[in-house]
Amino acid sequence: MVQKLREVGFEIFSIAEQSHGISDELVLEIAHENGSLLITQDKDFGDLVYRLGKAHEGVILLRSEGLTPYQKADLCLILVTQHTNELPGAFTVVYKDYVKIRKGNK
Rank of each mutant, 00 (worst) to 15 (best):
V93I: 15
V2H: 04
L61W: 00
V27P: 10
G58V: 11
I101A: 08
Q3C: 03
N85P: 00
E29A: 14
L48S: 10
K106Y: 07
T68K: 11
G66R: 10
S14V: 11
N34Q: 13
V93S: 13
G35R: 02
L48M: 09
H83Y: 14
V99D: 02
K106N: 06
I22T: 06
A16I: 13
S19R: 15
L37F: 06
V27Y: 06
L26Y: 12
V2A: 15
V2W: 00
L48W: 03
D74K: 04
V59T: 09
G104K: 09
F13G: 02
K4F: 05
V27T: 15
Q3N: 10
Y70I: 14
T40I: 03
I22M: 14
G46S: 12
E11Y: 00
E7F: 04
R51S: 12
D24A: 12
L77H: 02
S64G: 04
A16L: 08
I15P: 08
G58W: 01
R63P: 01
V80R: 09
L87K: 07
V8G: 07
G53W: 04
D42Y: 01
L37C: 08
G66S: 13
L61E: 02
L77T: 03
D42W: 01
I101Y: 05
Y98T: 15
V27Q: 09
P69W: 06
V93Q: 10
L61A: 05
L77D: 02
S14F: 12
A73Y: 01
E25V: 10
L48E: 05
S23Q: 06
E86L: 06
E86T: 05
H20E: 15
L62H: 02
T81E: 14
Q18Y: 03
M1N: 03
H32V: 05
K54H: 09
S14G: 15
V49Q: 05
E25T: 09
D47V: 05
Q18F: 02
P69T: 14
L28K: 12
D47M: 11
E25Y: 03
Q71F: 05
P88D: 11
A73H: 05
V93T: 14
E11K: 11
T40V: 03
L77Y: 00
I60C: 03
K96N: 13
L5Q: 11
K4E: 07
K106Q: 07
L67D: 10
E33H: 01
L48N: 05
E33T: 07
G58D: 03
L62D: 02
V80Q: 06
K106G: 05
M1G: 11
G9C: 12
R6T: 11
E17H: 10
L5S: 13
G104V: 07
F13V: 15
I15E: 06
D44T: 09
G104N: 14
Q71I: 11
F13A: 08
S14K: 09
E57R: 04
G89A: 08
I60N: 05
D47I: 11
V80S: 02
L79Y: 00
E33G: 04
F13W: 09
K43W: 02
N34I: 01
G104W: 02
G104A: 15
